[in-house]
Design a protein around this nucleic acid. Structure first.
Lengths: 394, 394
DNA sequence: CCATTTGCTTTATTTATTAAAATTATTATA
DNA sequence: TATAATAATTTTAATAAATAAAGCAAATGG
């Protein structure tokens, strides 16, 4: 699953270890013989590598089980309580810090709001005590934290580790968030765009357990996307892969902040809906009006669903995923229409892929970003177990 | 670059050899010391592996060159004339077979038409003598053919090796083309969709030499796409990744053969243009009318360019490629508008990516598919040199 | 209780790497 | 013109991590 770059011989071992660890995760519970079959490695090698994984505490032996005769198979499982991960979701007006085990289960979670705070340092000041406290909690339980995953709005430049400004996280442009966090908390820090962390939450802890190709669509103040292909996050040449809010849905339509015209985001995001409705300025109000049967609101709602239908069809045809997962602040209002959306999109697909097409709801609701931040670290661990663990103080 | 699966120790060598071969290709000409730096392998290993590559005939030593003092560097190059590749483009109404060297240079090419022939076997009967003759040519020159690359319209099921029917290659649904060709010609056979082979032609022999992420858009009787990300072809979960002709451009528009409505293909393909124009049924006639200033035709042309502008903007935002390459039967009529298209699309992009955005013309014109078929085999060779060469009779 | 089966571990061997020394080729300098 | 200096490549001995095959452990059934 990992790509093996130049290759010093030593790295082969690490690669095989990662391969084994991933297979253990995939199967939840698996014996050494099965690993022999799946990996193509010999039984001796499996013995050695699993032993090393047992020593690190990443896996454990559990019950035995097997057929009728012969020695029973010892099942191996991921050990989810030996190490912890901290996830940090920095939103535009709020934050959430969570302590989670390796299965993505939240042990503890703190939320807070950052309304009006524009200075990144001040936001970190606000977050710091909670984060430190979670870190202490984990260490007290002898489950050291292997890393800090961070979910932020909008894309980041991987080379410089700084945030890109557009379209929407004022005050944070150019802030060297990665190095700042590493210095401040002494943890391995991993950062991604919120749409992408959401996609990773599904990949590792949600619907993606089986689906190797998925697209997460987050609808809120903007519309964003995260793509996982063959189990890997796709970022694109400029880090802008999967900006699904900026597909042109209405040629000749409104000019978007991105420079394009008729973007789905201009009509399908929360601000987009409110602009089209022009009956108020809260999304709650809008859906209230819809429920009350207000004709303008109902009409606007119909259009919103139609745009969603068009956009999702386009996205199936461009990304060919196993599943599209829907989430974001707007989505709770749309959940009740899911089966309708499904059938309308299916009706527009090639007949021969219709059954293979899935549209689902995000698994973690309001905590999707925070869980995704955790998943970001977990993915790194499964891809490079020893290296990721290396920086961890036991 | 290649993904190393389970991993027997022996495979490490193959992987390193592939890595070295790719670096030699990338740099056109490179010395052993430079390979040491680039791969991270030691000089001894580089000596061994390059020696083996020299023996297979895949590379050669060329001139020496270097700084002021010390022993000169011996430059290594890909040897392009020792092995040959045959490319076969099967179109809906014509075919092309080419013999090419490893640099993608056409040594010989034969075209023919298949109008009215619906039976795959009959098409192969027509192609066979030309193909056999090219194969003999190559063997006579002591340059054995390492494989046969095939470009076909519409996607194929990788698991079964059979052609999928929709949307458009009547008579070929379910035909086991891969096994048929392998049996008939005794060559390693590699098959891909024509949009994808076109993309590969650029990847290996055209604009993709530097660009790691590219999108090829082919406009003709339909509109198709091929995506290369991080140097690898992307196919998607159902083999339908990059069906760019089926993005919804006009909500409420015409129903497409694919089942979707308002697809770009319904308005932007050759049939789409002719339907909108309704002034005749040849594309030559249409562009003639445009040149003569016929108002309806001019209007239709304006729309066509506008749709193209919208579609390309959407595609940049969804795939984030380094470059979008335009080709297909329709494109020669549009070439003169390229710089206009460029500036119109750029005007709609995020300001900070505007300079990194490139739109270019396909490199190989009418032979794009055939060259792409060759590139398909070349890519396999660079990824797994010894294995690909294994089946070749010297 | 012993033969049989199956799962896991151990040991000797192999392979492709690394590290370091040796060789080759070239230029600068005495 | 010999010789020192430098740089590129090759050779050699040592090493790491795999394989292959034999051995051990744990279970069932007559």
């Amino acid at each position: 699953m990992t790509t093996l770059k130049p290759v010093y011989l030593q790295k082969v071992k690490q690669h095989n270890m990662a391969d084994i660890l991933q297979k253990i995760w995939e199967h939840e519970s698996i014996s050494r013989v099965e690993l022999v079959e799946l990996t193509g490695l010999t039984s001796g090698t499996i013995t050695n590598l699993t032993q090393e994984l047992l020593q690190t505490g990443l896996i454990r032996e559990s019950e035995t089980s097997s057929g009728s005769v012969g020695r029973k198979r010892v099942m191996l499982k991921l050990r989810t309580d030996r190490y912890m991960i901290i996830g940090l979701d920095i939103g535009r007006t709020s934050f959430e810090v969570v302590l989670a085990d390796l299965a993505g289960r939240m042990i503890k979670s703190v939320e807070g709001n950052t309304v009006g705070i524009r200075n990144p340092e001040q936001v970190l000041d606000l977050v710091a005590p909670h984060l430190e406290s979670l870190k202490t909690d984990a260490t007290d339980k002898k489950s050291p934290v292997i890393g800090l995953g961070v979910s932020i709005p909008g894309p980041m430049d991987k080379k410089t580790g700084k945030l890109l400004s557009p379209p929407n996280f004022p005050g944070w442009e150019g802030y060297p968030i990665q190095s700042a966090l590493e210095r401040r908390f002494g943890l391995n820090v991993f950062i991604e765009d919120d749409a992408r962390t959401s996609a990773l939450a599904e990949r590792w802890y949600g619907l993606g357990r089986k689906a190797q190709d998925l697209l997460f669509v987050t609808m809120g103040m903007g519309i964003g996307g995260g793509v996982v292909a063959k189990g890997e996050l796709v970022v694109g040449s400029n880090g802008l892969y999967g900006q699904v809010g900026h597909i042109t849905l209405l040629p000749g339509g409104e000019i978007c902040a991105c420079g394009n015209e008729g973007c789905w985001e201009t009509v399908g995001s929360i601000p987009g809906i409110l602009r089209r409705w022009s009956g108020g300025n809260t999304i709650d109000g809008f859906f209230q009006a819809v429920r009350e049967g207000d004709p303008a609101a109902v009409q606007c709602m119909q259009e919103t669903l139609y745009y969603l239908e068009c956009a999702l069809t386009t996205l199936f045809n461009t990304y060919d995923p196993d599943v599209i997962v829907l989430g974001g602040k707007l989505y709770p209002y749309l959940t009740m229409h899911l089966s309708e959306i499904r059938s309308r999109v299916k009706a527009r697909m090639y007949a021969f892929v219709r059954d293979r097409l899935h549209i689902e709801s995000a698994t973690f609701g309001a905590s999707q970003n925070a869980v995704g931040a955790v998943a970001l670290v977990f993915g790194a661990l499964l891809n490079e177990p020893l290296q990721t663990l290396a920086g961890t103080k036991t």
